[in-house]
Amino acid sequence: MGCQFYDTVEDVWVATERYTADGLFLLMPEQVHQCPQLEAALQRCLEQRLYCQDAEITLRLPVALLAQDAQFGTVGRMTHLTLHHTPRSLAILGEEPLIRRLQQNWLGELRHTSMGELLQRVLLSIIYSHERVARVLVERLQVLRMALKTAMGNTELRQIVALNRDLGELVIALRETGLILRNALRATPGESPVYPLLDAALREQRRIEDGVNLIHERYLAVTNAYNGIVQNNAHTVMKVMTVWLALLMMPIAFIMPWHMMTPLPLEHWHYLWFGLLAYVFGVTLLFARWARKHGFFSM
């Protein structure tokens, strides 16, 4: 995917060779060297995350994405989107999947949209990316939690720990976004048309941060209960194995007196062997029924 320019006359995206500082542009990091106007601002922004000069604002904001990990399955991944906004242009710089998603979901019906409105749309898409990823992580967390019902190893627990950590990363990234937006708002004059847009974005960031933080805190607080569930699974298996051990011990214990080298009761009875077997297994069976009634065998 090359540099993309939005043609407002034809209402289409067109591939372009260079950034002309007028209109809406989508770029990837490797294309920046083709845009000398942008390079200096982006270089400064890379260090400070925010660069303001006159009516130009350059922001480097964290964006949340979903990624597949061979060990942990679906996980959250952080990347950055850089926005360079002037009253007449907006350049959006980021990884290809991010740019593509932005183009598909957020940058449609643009013919009558001002650069300010576009900036707000992109800012909101960045803020909502954290909430969207948080929701997917929570769904995955709930699936893993159900898988814990029968788990005795650490696989699911380790995945849950990784998801909790990802949720924490989202909260941190949202806080970072808030900090950058607050600084951008301070650096923007109150009469600038961008000011109310940044203000609205900042308020929305606070709301989303509160929500994601709440989700993170609540799910983190119950992690110890998951440990309890896994331990309970192992205990249940041990419980059933122990009851079987007790059951095996019982016939041995009851038949032992008839091993003695002394005169035994009923030793001349022809059916003593059958009688003793019936006796020991009968007693064992009675115990097994009692144990079953009390849930000793329940898994």
Binding site: H235, M238, K239, T242, V243, L245, A246, M249, M250, I252, A253, F254, M256, P257, F296
Partner: peptide, 16 residues
Amino acid sequence: LFKFMAALIILATIPL
């Protein structure tokens, strides 16, 4: 349950 069963196993071991 473990405690109960361990006690039972000890009792079942004495005849051995």
